[in-house]
Design a protein around this nucleic acid. Structure first.
Lengths: 257, 257
DNA sequence: GAGTGGTCTAGACCACACT
DNA sequence: GTGTGGTCTAGACCACTCC
């Protein structure tokens, strides 16, 4: 890092590591900030240094830091709060809790579902899980199965999760049962894994005998199958999830633009 | 509009229409630009004036215009092209064609479906259509029914559309059959209706006798039901659409963040 | 009042597209 | 070359939060 001289313009290398970096300055700042998030220098929910301080640290103008943070806020990696500072996004706060769950009651209200853990076991990852989670063949995986039910006890969602065993070492049924709050918050605080974004594939399927029994539905009932691959920083896949949604009184909402 | 004196800071009224406007300047600029889009001053695909010219017109700095345009580009109302100018978004270009269609073949390729028009008729809008399209009771509506099929002729989607009859005066089966290209592009050029954003509700349903016959499936087969409300400027609803997707070889993709 | 993010400005220069 | 959007800077002031 240059210490005294003026920073070179946009197209010039600005890193100290010698790697050519022909990208806008604010993109380089963004990369540096992302690296700090990835490395755990700042953890979810924590304030990051002020724009002025970051501008001094990186020897760029505050406007350049602003632009980097603006984009990261757009990616929901950071959250700006006027007068307070900029915070690392987390799945803990009310506004971002369950932000990946698009299930909505048909009257538009939030679902407010209770959880029922069915299974949590460690296993060798299947070929499909190995592929989607980019594991090595033979790597361990944690499988979790659970139900989400209405307050009246009607099952709505049957969820199956697969997690890389290496990342989620202490995860167990006891740990899951003891945890109150969003699962993704547990992953943040217990395993230092932040879910940053996700890709979903939706299909309509017919309920199998087992699925029908668990969801208290006739065999063959139409179910919305939501297959989700959750990614952390650097687009690294860290969770595969298959949810079967009973959409008689709920639906999956989506906004297009 | 003030002509000579310096523009007042952010929290002051900047409009000439006397309405109090305690919002940032760039938001006011955004509103003015949106009004021009809405009023048809610039049509989809056309260049809008340069940032410098808009800055002169509105008597603000170029940076303020930039911020307004940045947000509108984020909303996909405008498209910036370096060296060329800023353009009104349209559903014509390859990059934005079918941008509301989330259907994907399971191998990840684009679906490339052919259309088969089944019906196009004018009718009195039903109660549900009246409500969702915010019509007046008794208002006319246009209903369109069509199939989307693979190149091999396998039906994949059964689409039902309802449009406000007042806006889509000349729309007919002949007009639809003569049109090549995206439907939403026809709406832009033929009826001056730009689809700006949409809200979708997804469910899994069982195929009815009629639906099964049209989609060449057994009765009761699970189908992905996608109910879409498309909105134009000012969040005015202008299309209600119900698609039934056969998801044996296709799926609905979604990105979460 | 001090510190934070948010807005606005003015000006310089770069990257890109057309001619 | 000219005009467009894209980047970067420096500085002023505003709005919000907390002490």
């Amino acid at each position: 890092m240059q210490e005294t001289s003026k920073v070179a313009p946009a197209a010039a290398a600005h890193d100290s590591n010698g790697a050519p970096a022909f990208s806008p300055l604010y993109q380089q700042i963004k990369a540096l900030l992302t690296r700090s998030l990835q490395g755990g220098e700042w953890v979810p929910g924590q304030v990051i240094p002020s724009e002025k301080e970051l501008a001094l640290r990186f020897r760029v103008s505050q406007g350049t830091v602003r632009k980097a943070i603006d984009e990261m806020a757009g990616d929901k990696l950071l959250v700006r709060r006027q007068g307070k500072g900029t915070f690392v996004a987390s799945h803990a706060e009310a506004s971002t809790r369950y932000r990946f769950l698009r299930l909505t009651a048909d009257d538009g209200s939030a679902p407010a579902l209770q959880r029922q853990l069915l299974e949590c076991r460690r296993m060798r990852a299947s070929a499909d899980v190995v592929r989607q989670l980019a594991l090595k063949p033979g790597d361990p995986a944690v499988q979790v199965r659970r139900l989400l039910l209405t307050a009246q006890g009607q099952p709505v969602v049957l969820d199956d999760l697969w997690l890389p065993g290496v990342l989620f070492k202490g995860l167990s049924a006891e740990r899951l049962l003891a945890w109150e709050g969003p699962l993704y918050r547990l992953f943040e605080v217990g395993y230092s894994v932040s879910m940053v974004r996700a890709e979903e594939k939706l299909r309509a399927v017919a309920a199998s005998v087992e699925e029908a029994a668990l969801l208290n539905l006739p065999v063959g009932a139409p179910l919305l199958c939501v297959e989700r691959l959750s990614l952390t920083h650097g687009d690294k896949p860290v969770e595969l999830r298959r949810g079967l949604y009973h959409t008689r009184h709920h639906h999956y909402r989506n906004e297009l633009s």
